[in-house]
């Protein structure tokens, strides 16, 4: 079984990216073996529809769960339709988020927790 985690870097010691649609990388990992693949997310540059594109991308990766900070309505709808569970509120290092997930420290959410364009505003605020 594989899970997907939004990350600011391309390895397990990177920070979890709080944004789904506009995260820097998706880390697709087997939580038991910690074997992983890092996928650069080009949707970060999209003016709109980043969540849709990112959602499609992870849907092709056969993950069962997505761990991220926040998720918008479009992305959530895609993950839900693809049968992928969504977990929000993940933070810290990717490795730590996996540990917490394995211990059952997260619960899948029933809907999006932020509005469209959250990731754009988040990026602007950081500047």
């Amino acid at each position: 079984m594989k899970i997907g985690i939004t990350a600011k870097g391309d390895n397990l010691d990177s920070e979890v990216d709080p944004r789904f649609g506009r995260c820097k990388y998706f880390i697709i990992v087997d939580p038991d073996t910690l074997e992983f693949e890092a996928i650069e997310n080009f949707s970060i540059e999209a003016s709109g529809g980043a969540g849709v594109q990112s959602g499609q991308l992870v849907a092709t990766k056969e993950v069962e769960v997505i761990l991220t900070g926040n998720i918008g309505p479009n992305a959530f709808q895609i993950l839900q339709s693809a049968g992928i569970k969504t977990i929000t509120g993940a933070s810290g290092k990717v490795r730590e988020a996996i540990e917490k997930y394995k211990k059952g420290g997260f619960k899948p959410v029933e809907g999006s927790n932020v509005n469209s364009k959250f990731g754009v505003l988040e990026e602007k605020n950081r500047r």
Binding site: G49, V52, T60, I78, S81
Partner: peptide
């Protein structure tokens, strides 16, 4: 170009606002 369509393995989703 505006990502208004998402094609999943067994479903297509349309996002009219995009």
């Amino acid at each position: 170009a505006y990502h208004a369509l998402a094609v999943l393995p067994k479903k297509v989703l349309v996002f009219p606002h995009l």
